[in-house]
Nucleic acid binder design. Structure first.
Lengths: 64, 64
DNA sequence: TACTTTTGTAAAGTACACTTTACATAAAAT
DNA sequence: ATTTTATGTAAAGTGTACTTTACAAAAGTA
């Protein structure tokens, strides 16, 4: 699964730390998601969706 | 988080077992999701979205 | 009623989402 | 050049998504 979190975050002039605090996860979690080390939980994806005002399907791309 | 999985599944004349096999999880996992015992992973949500041809946001409802 | 299918649920184990602490590097600012 | 800010990453621990096995109860069917 790929995602556009880094682009969305930088477009909004946020650091990983900023985004982490808003979403309610650790900075390392944001980094891992951006780097594709693991996928977020559904609740975390929903929080990002709400923040960036984009449906989950326009932020995360499930290949296969 | 609430969801419409049970309604979608029964509307499609599927048993929990049927749905589990199609999605690639155990029957107990389908039962737990329908019963709200836990939320699916993002990949599992995407598979359901593809099967039922509905965006994740129309199947799962994140209540803050 | 008896039989079969479907659903509910429990226990114990595995995999992964996520945490904290910590440190190293890169980039930006002074 | 030096300090500050932002990012990358690793280790060890916690919580939860999910598994298998197993059994009981509900619901559908003969």
């Amino acid at each position: 699964m790929k995602n556009k979190i880094r682009e969305l975050r930088t477009a909004g002039n946020m650091t990983q730390e900023d985004l982490a605090e808003i979403i309610g996860v650790s900075r390392q979690t944001i980094n891992a998601i951006e780097k594709g080390k693991f996928d977020p939980s559904l609740p975390t994806a929903f929080k990002m969706s709400k923040l960036f005002k984009l449906p989950i399907e326009q932020m995360f791309f499930f290949d296969e």
